[in-house]
Amino acid sequence: MTDPSRPSDPSPRILRLAELPQDAPTAFALEPDAGTRAALAETLGIDAIRKLRFTGTLAPEGRSDWHLEGVLGATVVQPCVVTLAPVATRIDTTVTRRYLAGFDLPETAAEVEMPEDVTSELLPERVDLMAVMTEALALSLPDYPRAEGVELGTAQAAPPGVAPLSDEELKPFAGLQGLRDKLRRDS
């Protein structure tokens, strides 16, 4: 009997690096079932994930490092930031991770800087493919999804009897530009 809380993926979700072949890449493919996609959508704060597939390989690199190369494909539904109508978005992205035995972690929080290579991580004992897929999906979601043809309007507010300020008037250098134009006309 199968566990309904586990999707029927063609490959395991967690790959123990010590158990993988050291001379060839290990292929993987995750296709979470509807229940797992619904739970993931709730975790990510979106309406739905209609389709989700993460495929690729995890290959040894050198003596102790590993390289994950994958493709994430998903169809997600998010609310429009203007109308709240559901917006479906297709996501197709490449996912790359390098797991390095010699990865240097900073000693204190004061030393933390964004590394140049954001794909590199400390070598783990095992790679959780579901976690990698979830992170890649979260990073690929549109920040401000909009329904087709929807434009973000302008908001204007002012007390009664006073003309509202426009966006142009609120820009800090708008007055200087007017002064520059006046000075050019005068000279």
Rank of each mutant, 00 (worst) to 15 (best):
R98Y: 15
G102P: 08
T96A: 11
T43G: 13
G35Y: 02
R53L: 06
V76H: 02
V87Y: 11
V87H: 10
R37D: 04
A88H: 14
G45Y: 09
D104C: 11
P79L: 14
A27L: 05
T57M: 06
D47S: 15
G73W: 00
D65S: 13
R63C: 09
A18R: 02
L20C: 09
A59D: 11
L15K: 02
H67M: 07
G56Y: 05
K51F: 00
L68F: 12
T55N: 03
L100A: 14
G70L: 01
F54C: 02
E31T: 10
L44I: 09
E42I: 01
E69S: 05
L15D: 00
G35L: 09
P106D: 03
T26N: 04
E107Q: 08
G56N: 05
I14L: 07
T83D: 08
P79D: 06
G56I: 07
L105A: 14
A29M: 12
G45C: 11
I49D: 03
W66D: 00
R97A: 01
C80D: 14
G56C: 12
R13M: 05
G70W: 01
A41D: 09
R50T: 15
T75W: 01
D65E: 11
A38Y: 01
A27R: 13
E107A: 15
L58Q: 07
A74Q: 01
Q78E: 11
Y99G: 07
I91D: 02
T93M: 02
L100P: 13
R63M: 09
A59C: 03
V71A: 12
F54E: 04
A88T: 15
E107T: 10
A85G: 04
T96W: 04
L30H: 01
L68V: 08
T108C: 10
L20S: 06
R63F: 15
A38P: 13
P86M: 14
I49S: 00
T89G: 05
S64K: 02
G56R: 06
D65C: 13
D47L: 14
W66Y: 07
A48V: 08
T108D: 13
T55M: 06
P60T: 06
L58R: 04
L72H: 03
G56P: 10
T94V: 07
F103V: 04
R37T: 05
A39S: 11
V82A: 13
E31G: 01
L44H: 08
S64W: 07
R13E: 15
T75P: 03
C80S: 15
L17P: 04
L17G: 03
T55Q: 08
S64V: 12
L72V: 02
R16W: 13
I91S: 03
G45K: 09
F103W: 12
Q78Y: 11
P25R: 12
F54P: 04
T83L: 01
P106G: 06
L105K: 09
Q78I: 06
I49A: 03
D33M: 03
Q78S: 09
A109R: 08
V76C: 08
V95R: 05
T96P: 09
F103L: 02
V77P: 08
G62F: 02
G62T: 07
L20T: 03
A39K: 04
A29P: 09
G35E: 11
T89E: 04
T94Y: 02
A39F: 00
A109W: 14
T93D: 15
L72T: 00
F28E: 08
L52G: 00
A74L: 07
E42S: 12
T26W: 00
T93Q: 08
P32Y: 01
W66C: 05
G35R: 06
A39Q: 11
G70K: 06
V71S: 10
